[in-house]
């Protein structure tokens, strides 16, 4: 028995599937970008980091 690779349903849902694929890809890219940014920031500048060190007088902002 041959498997029909393309059902009519696939054609109808094509746009939806492409869009969801792009969104998922976008999410992966965004999380990756945020990770890179967060990891490259010195932890002490992040006021929510556990090792936050308040800036002392004379430091730049």
């Amino acid at each position: 028995m041959s498997i029909r690779p393309e059902h009519e349903l696939h054609a109808r849902r094509k746009g939806r599937n492409i869009a969801i694929g792009l969104i998922l890809g976008g999410m992966v890219a965004m999380i990756f970008a945020v990770s890179i940014v967060k990891l490259s920031q010195p932890q002490s500048e992040d006021i929510h980091a556990p090792n936050y060190v308040p800036a002392t007088a004379g430091d730049s902002e």
Partner: peptide
């Protein structure tokens, strides 16, 4: 392969938009 036509019950397929 499952028969996909069995889940095709609606007249309108919700599009992404």
């Amino acid at each position: 392969m499952a028969d996909v036509s069995s889940i095709d019950t609606r007249e309108h397929e919700a599009q992404f938009g």
